[in-house]
């Protein structure tokens, strides 16, 4: 070695920087944006008995002109057919109920973990994340075993003599909420925990010292300071919960209708790709609003 300092030249460095940014962008463009544009394209077509089963948007007219045909009938359909409106409403309701209950359960849990000493926080957080070690599908099936008429809950209650015929707690709205709250709870707890853990706990002592009882300390100090965590957790739960398909399908009743189920029906039962695509595009548009709130909120560095 000559002992000469080695300077990486500016060009290699900026190329490296370009690459680190370009790879994730390329990933998203290839696997999210491009497929989404294809779906958007299909949504403007009509179904046909062909492979793929929809009319091409671009074709040649008889006089040799290049014709671009955009059908907006599908969009009219999903905004006029009550089936789709009900599906959207029930998906939004499922997601909203899930957010409310994961928040009500998750906030005390996150607060409890964040207020433990450092040595207890890691194992307690591990317990919150433990369900991820088992397949999501298996966990949902397990709920069927717990909730069914001769399942764990019913047989225990009957054996104890509390009830004499099984409770109807499976395949209805209750079991859908239960399953969704169960599945999404960690997504609420983790962002709440990370914000509560960062909070300066001496602020709570200061409020207490200034004469505020615990309820007022919570209302005026803890809650406003953890608001970014509440927003982040709620969106992290709400956005995937709107599109949730598996839980309502497995735990819901025959009349449970969600956007996910509507999509499935259009694609696989009706083979109507254009309508299915329209449903999917409308769902994305529906979720862009909350996503933008999340963006804004994270952009302000956690202070609303």
């Amino acid at each position: 070695m000559s002992g000469e300092p080695i300077f990486s030249n500016a060009q290699t460095r900026s190329f490296g920087r370009f690459l680190t940014v370009a790879i994730p962008y390329a990933w998203f463009i290839t696997f999210f944006l491009a497929p989404f544009l294809i779906v958007a394209k299909i949504s403007l077509s009509t179904a046909a008995t062909a492979i793929p089963p929809y009319e091409p948007l671009v074709g040649w007219a008889d006089d040799g002109a290049l014709v671009l045909t955009l059908h907006i009938a599908n969009y009219k359909l999903i905004f006029s057919d009550s089936v789709y409106l009900i599906a959207y409403a029930s998906s939004l309701r499922n997601a909203a109920v899930t957010v409310i209950f994961t928040l009500l359960l998750g906030y005390p849990l996150a607060y409890f973990i964040a207020s433990r000493s450092a040595k207890w926080r890691a194992p307690l957080l591990m317990l919150v994340m433990m369900p991820f070690w088992t397949s999501f599908l298996i966990r949902v099936y397990a709920w069927i075993g717990i909730l069914k008429p001769n399942g764990v809950i019913n047989s225990t209650l009957i054996w104890l003599g509390v009830i004499d015929k099984p409770l109807e707690i499976l395949n209805n709205q209750f079991s859908v909420y239960l399953g969704m709250v169960y599945a999404y709870l960690p997504f609420m707890v983790l962002p709440l925990y990370s914000h509560l853990e960062k909070m300066d706990w001496s602020l709570l002592e200061a409020a207490n010292d200034l004469g505020a009882r615990p309820a007022r300390v919570f209302r005026e100090v803890t809650l406003p300071l953890s608001m970014p965590g509440i927003v982040a957790g709620s969106l992290l739960v709400f956005i995937p919960a709107v599109g949730e398909y598996i839980i309502p399908t497995l735990l819901g009743g025959p009349d449970t209708l969600t956007i996910g189920a509507a999509l499935w029906n259009e694609f696989f039962s009706n083979h109507d790709w254009p309508v299915a695509s329209t449903v999917a595009v409308a769902l994305v548009v529906l979720l862009v609003g909350p996503l933008m709130i999340l963006q804004r909120q994270q952009g302000t560095g956690g202070h609303p």
Binding site: A206, A207, D209, L210, H303
Partner: peptide, 20 residues
């Protein structure tokens, strides 16, 4: 007495001013 009932007040080392 609980802290909020005591006739004493404290000035904290990091001041603990409410940031919001």
């Amino acid at each position: 007495l609980q802290p909020y009932e005591r006739p004493l007040n404290m000035m904290f080392q990091n001041y603990a001013l409410f940031p919001h």
